[in-house]
Simulated scan of single mutants.
Amino acid sequence: MRLTRTLCAAAALLAVATAGPPAHAARANPPKIPTVFLGDAFVAGWGIAPVDPGALLCVRAKENLPDVVEDQLADQSILLDITADVSCAGAALHHVWQEQDLGGGEVAAPQKRALTKRTELVVAGLGAGTAGWGQILKQCSQRLRGTEGSHLPDLPVDAGSPAGQCAAYFARGVGARWLEQRFEQTGKDLDKLFSEIASESPSARTVLVGYPRLVPEDRGRCRTPLPDSAERPLADVPESAWDFLDSKVQARLNSLMAAKAEQHHAHFVDLYATTGTATACDGTDRSAGGLLEPSAVTLLHQRLPWLLAANETGRDGNGDTVAQSIAAMYGRGPA
Rank of each mutant, 00 (worst) to 15 (best):
T274E: 10
T275W: 10
A261N: 02
A261D: 04
H267M: 08
L299W: 04
D270G: 05
A258K: 13
A258Q: 12
H264E: 10
Q263H: 12
A259F: 10
H265Q: 14
L291R: 08
R286T: 08
A296E: 15
A266R: 04
A273T: 08
G290K: 01
Q263R: 13
L256A: 03
D270Y: 06
L271R: 06
R286N: 07
G276H: 07
P294S: 05
A261F: 08
V269P: 00
D285K: 15
D282M: 04
R252G: 02
A278I: 02
L291S: 04
A280G: 11
E293G: 14
A278Y: 11
A280R: 07
A296G: 05
K260H: 04
L256M: 09
S255Q: 05
V297G: 03
D282C: 02
T274H: 04
D282W: 02
G289V: 10
F268G: 08
H267L: 12
Y272L: 07
G276R: 01
G290Y: 00
S295L: 03
D285H: 15
L271G: 03
D285R: 14
Q250V: 01
A288H: 03
A266K: 05
S295V: 03
A261T: 08
N254P: 11
G283C: 15
G283K: 14
S255V: 04
K260Q: 11
A261L: 03
R252K: 15
V269D: 02
T279V: 12
L256P: 00
C281V: 08
T277A: 15
C281W: 01
D282N: 12
T275I: 10
A251H: 02
H264F: 13
T274I: 06
A258H: 13
S255A: 15
T298D: 00
R252V: 09
T274P: 00
Y272W: 13
Q263A: 15
T275S: 15
L292M: 04
L299V: 04
A278N: 09
D270Q: 11
T284C: 14
H264T: 08
Y272T: 01
L271S: 02
T274Q: 09
T277W: 06
D282H: 15
T298F: 04
S255K: 12
S295T: 05
T298V: 01
P294H: 01
H267C: 14
N254W: 04
L271M: 12
M257Q: 15
G276I: 00
T275K: 01
A288W: 06
D285T: 14
K260Y: 02
V269Q: 06
S295H: 02
A258S: 14
G283D: 12
G290N: 03
A296L: 12
H264G: 11
A280F: 09
T274A: 05
T279F: 06
G289M: 03
Y272C: 02
A258E: 11
Q263T: 10
A296N: 06
Q263M: 11
H265S: 14
G283L: 12
D285P: 09
